[in-house]
C-alpha cells in the first residue's frame, strides 16, 4: 500500500486518476481502516486528504448556505454553534455516527463515500437538499447528494473524482434525523429517516423526506413529502406520511433487522422526525 499526502484536491485527483489498482481516499479513516483490518479492502493507493488547505473549514457562503470541508469531523460540527442552529438535523445525524472516539475523526464526506445505505448523515443531507463539490480530472462539478450513492459500496463518481466539500443551503425551516438501533449507541442504523421542512405560520410549505437502511441506497421519498406539504401535521397527513415512507421501503432481511420491521419502523420514524422538524421550523 502506498500512502499519499497531496496538498491539493487536484493533486489528489491526479494520483487517483493515475492509479492502476484499488484506491481509497483517507479522511477520518473510520471506515477505511476497519476495511483494511478486516481484510475487506486493501488499497494499493491510500490518499490522505487531510493535508489539503481548507479541508477542516466550516464556512458560511454569501447566500447564507454552508460549505463543510471533506475532513471536518463530527465533533467539529457539534462544536460549531452556527451550523448547529441552521441544520440541527444534519449535525445530530453526524453526531450519531459511532462513539465519542469515532466522532473525533469521522466525516460526512467519508460517511457518504463509504456508500453504505445505512450511513446516518446521508439521509439528513438528502433531506436538507445538500450538494457535493467534486474535483476530478475534468475539473470541478456539483452533484446532489442523493445522486452519489448508486448501491451498497458503489458511487457515481468517475475514476479520479474526489469529493472536496459538502454544501448545505441556507437554513430556511427545520430539520431532523432519527434512526432506530437496538442499543442506545454504537450500532449501525436499522432504519434512518431525515425530514427537512419549512412552514408559513402553521402550514408546511415545502418538505423533503429521506430514508436510510431500507433500500440499496438512501431514498428521497417524494410521496412522503407530498403528504406533509400543505398540512399542519394533523393525524391524517401523519398517517399518509407513515404509509408513504413504508411504501417506499425496499429492504432486506439481515442480521440487523427484518423486512417487516424496517418497513414498519420507517413509518414510525418518519412521523417522529417530522414532528421534531415541524417544531424546529416554527421556532
Amino acid at each position: 500500500m502506498r500512502y499519499h499526502t497531496p496538498d491539493s484536491f487536484e493533486d489528489a485527483s491526479a494520483i487517483a486518476a493515475a492509479a492502476s489498482g484499488t484506491t481509497r481516499f483517507l479522511a477520518g479513516g473510520t471506515d477505511v481502516l476497519v476495511q483494511l483490518r478486516s481484510d475487506l479492502v486493501e488499497p494499493d493507493d491510500l490518499i490522505d486528504v487531510k493535508h489539503i488547505p481548507g479541508v477542516k473549514d466550516i464556512a458560511q457562503t454569501a447566500d447564507g448556505g454552508w460549505r463543510i470541508g471533506a475532513a471536518v469531523s463530527g465533533a467539529e460540527m457539534m462544536a460549531h454553534a452556527g451550523l448547529r442552529a441552521a441544520w440541527p438535523g444534519v449535525v445530530e445525524a453526524t453526531d450519531l455516527i459511532g462513539s465519542t472516539q469515532i466522532q473525533t475523526r469521522c466525516t460526512m464526506v467519508g460517511n457518504l463515500c463509504n456508500g453504505s445505505p445505512a450511513a446516518d448523515s446521508v439521509p439528513a443531507l438528502v433531506a436538507a437538499g445538500a450538494t457535493a463539490t467534486i474535483v476530478g480530472p475534468n475539473g470541478t462539478r456539483e452533484a446532489a447528494v442523493e445522486d452519489i450513492p448508486t448501491g451498497p459500496g458503489r458511487l457515481s463518481l468517475a475514476k479520479g473524482e474526489v469529493v472536496s466539500a459538502l454544501n448545505l443551503p441556507a437554513g430556511h425551516g427545520g430539520d431532523a434525523y432519527l434512526r432506530f438501533i437496538p442499543r442506545t449507541e454504537m450500532d449501525i442504523a436499522v432504519v434512518g429517516c431525515g425530514v427537512s421542512l419549512a412552514r408559513d405560520g402553521d402550514v408546511i410549505t415545502s418538505a423533503r423526506v429521506s430514508l436510510g437502511a431500507v433500500a440499496p441506497t438512501v431514498l428521497l421519498v417524494a410521496d412522503a413529502a407530498t403528504a406533509l406539504i400543505g398540512s399542519r401535521l394533523e393525524e391524517a397527513p401523519l398517517a399518509q406520511l407513515a404509509a408513504a415512507a413504508s411504501a417506499a421501503c425496499n429492504p432486506i432481511d439481515d442480521k440487523r433487522g427484518t423486512i417487516k420491521f424496517r418497513t414498519h419502523v420507517a413509518g414510525v420514524l418518519a412521523q417522529r422526525a417530522a414532528k421534531i422538524a415541524y417544531d424546529r421550523a416554527g421556532a
Binding site: 437496538p182 442499543r183 442506545t184 449507541e185 454504537m186 450500532d187 449501525i188 439481515d254 442480521k255 440487523r256
Partner: peptide, 29 residues
Amino acid sequence: ALNEEYIYGEDGRLQNAGFLDYRIPVASD
C-alpha cells in the same frame, strides 16, 4: 436477554463476528 446472539446465515457462517453486531451492553444502555 435483549441483544446478544450468535447469528448464522443459511450458509452456516457466523454473521456477526465483532462487537459492532454482537451487541454487548454499552454504558448508556
